[in-house]
Amino acid sequence: MRRAADVTLVLVLLLACAAALLAGGPAATPADALAALAGGGTPEARIVVFGLRLPRLLLGIGVGAALALAGAALQSLLGNPLADPFLLGISGGGAAAATAAFALLPVAALGLVPAAAMAGAAGATALVWWMARGPLGPSSTRMILAGVAVNAAASAAILTILSVAPSPRLPGALAVTMGSLASANGAAVAWLAPYLFVPAFVLLLHGRDLGLLATGEESAAALGVEVGTVRRRVFLAAAALSGGAVAFAGVIGFVGLVTPHLCRMVWGQSTRRLLPRAALAGAALMVLGDLVARRAVAPAELPVGVVTALLGVPFFVVLLRRTP
């Protein structure tokens, strides 16, 4: 049963990738794209496939995997099924900094928006961590409360920026808040890939520890988990993954929250098994979501966050009702 689910997951991801490369408008029809992938095709089709669709596909895989991994890890770390990069204010901090950068930076410096988003996510992370430290050390409840507060502040900041931003800058700033993979390019992907790899490895390394932490810190410590060290590493790694995702794709909700739950329903609660599958499922959901975002109302585009929610919610509802 689990083996079959594994195979299905990989097949879905591969099919989604193939569809993302092949499907598109008249500049590169599926036949043109296939020819380009085979090494031939028109120069125009090659540019579309390798210069636009492939970076966008890779960005989608990276962002989807990063969000789902971060969500799965944070849920276990904090022993709270509602935890995700949003709830903890990390995405919000990144988005606030990115919208501010979009609204305020001169045109020549707009390349710094991802760096600003990273810095915002890191700042929000540090703030949440600092607020969560009580006299008895950081606690999960305090961390979530701190996240909610940081999130509220970030939302207020974003709304303020949007209401005072000069109108030519509004579309870019809005895109950050709605989430989009449209800005994908080879350089962004080349930069993001190694950046995501290290924190992803850290989370996978602590898969078993996270499973133990999901039943409480005392219980995890009694079972051999170095709680302080693991909590610090996992929180930083999850924040780095979320920050990277926000920097290049804006705020994409739902993937980080629901993908881990979908996977838990299929593969059970072992976090060691869950994390790699959540990463693959997040990637698949994001690639499929972006495909729909790109094609549903072509030549216009939908915000990918809206699509991932629309795609994921029905699955989630069905699985939730069926799970005992």
Binding site: N80, G207, R208, T215, G224, R264
Partner: peptide, 22 residues
């Protein structure tokens, strides 16, 4: 506190974690 719907076997298996490593 069980935040996630673990089974009896999954909880009992946690006892082996110290012997298993990552």
């Amino acid at each position: 506190s069980f935040a996630f719907p673990l089974t009896v076997a999954e909880v009992a298996q946690q006892g082996r974690a110290p012997h298993l490593g990552p």
